[in-house]
């Protein structure tokens, strides 16, 4: 926590970090081993299959069936499209609301109110309006993802230090220059918090809609496997989707590390003990 306390034992920093990492992997491996043994010897095969059977199912029905591959590809496309739309419209609306006092104070509460609505209750409506195809899923992902981006853009612009603004103003910066050189760099960290949250919620929205529409896409296959008590391909498909979700989250992390002014200057390698406190923020 405090640099001063850790400084004297810096010689032990590397082995300790490695031990932490090893323990972490040991826990994961232990869980996998437990599931393998439990699935193989104790569980009812209609509900639970060992990890090895799931891996076999991953190769055979999941990754070799062109219909499933197509559904997976469509899901990736939907997530990308929904996320792209969220970023474009979220940042535009966020900048429009956050740029001046009056719209911020009057419309920001409205946005927060809309953000608090449990959107799952609107899912049947979205499907009713947009149909069973990808449009409903893209819209549902978009409507989930846009709010954290708006909220964090606005709060990022608000948090700009008054002192910087006044300094820039007294040095004769124009409004455009203030936005470009003061407001914008100041907004970046908060904006990325929004981007990360938006990715989580976009994934949630797209997957919820995918599961709800069970006549095609991923939802059809998950329902098929769950209702025919065929857990191995169900687990494998879920695993693939989880990997896709992790990959999308990883992309956002990489973009954040590359593009945030403060983080770019300090490579993570210098602090082996740091286990990224940012990771805990939802």
């Amino acid at each position: 926590m405090s640099a001063a306390a850790d400084a004297p034992k810096s010689g032990f920093a590397m082995p300790r970090a490695r031990a932490v990492k090893l323990t972490r992997w040991a826990i994961i491996a232990g869980a996998a081993l437990f599931l393998e043994i439990y699935g193989r010897f104790f569980a009812d095969p209609a509900f639970m299959q060992p990890v090895s059977a799931v891996l076999k199912a991953l190769i055979h029905p999941i990754l070799s069936d062109p219909r499933i591959l197509q559904a997976l590809g469509l899901t990736i496309f939907e997530i990308g499209a929904a996320y792209g739309l969220s970023i474009v419209f979220g940042s535009l609306i966020g900048v429009a609301i956050g740029s001046a006092n009056l719209p911020r104070k009057s419309l920001y509460p409205v946005i927060l109110l809309l953000y608090a609505i449990p959107q799952v209750s609107l899912m049947p409506l979205v499907v009713l309006i947009f149909g069973l195809g990808p449009a409903a899923k893209i819209f549902f992902g978009f409507s989930h993802g846009i709010f954290p981006i708006i909220v964090n853009t606005v709060s990022g612009m608000r948090n700009s230090n008054e002192l910087f603004l006044r300094a820039a103003g007294s040095m004769g910066a124009s409004r455009a220059q203030i936005i470009r050189h003061v407001l914008f760099p100041n907004m970046v960290p908060s904006f990325f918090v929004g981007l990360r949250l938006a990715m989580t919620l976009t994934l949630l929205g797209v997957i919820l809609a995918e599961l709800y529409v069970s006549t095609g896409g991923i939802g059809y296959f998950t329902r098929l496997y769950a209702e025919s008590y065929n857990p191995a391909p169900l687990f494998a498909l879920t695993g693939v989707l989880a990997a896709i979700a992790l990959a999308f989250n990883g992309l956002v992390r990489i973009a954040e590390r590359r593009l945030t002014p403060g983080l770019r200057a300090a490579p993570a390698v210098k602090t082996p003990k740091g286990n990224n406190p940012e990771g805990t923020a939802l």
């Binding site: 509900f47 989580t200 994934l203 949630l204 997957i207 919820l208 599961l211 998950t222 329902r223 496997y225 769950a226 008590y229 857990p231 169900l234 687990f235 879920t238 989707l241 989880a242 979700a245 992790l246 989250n249 939802l282």
Partner: peptide, 15 residues
């Protein structure tokens, strides 16, 4: 927690 747990919903139905 970064994985949407909704993914696992069919398993909850199964179990």
């Amino acid at each position: 927690f970064t994985i949407p747990i909704t993914l696992f919903f069919p398993m909850f139905i199964l179990f």
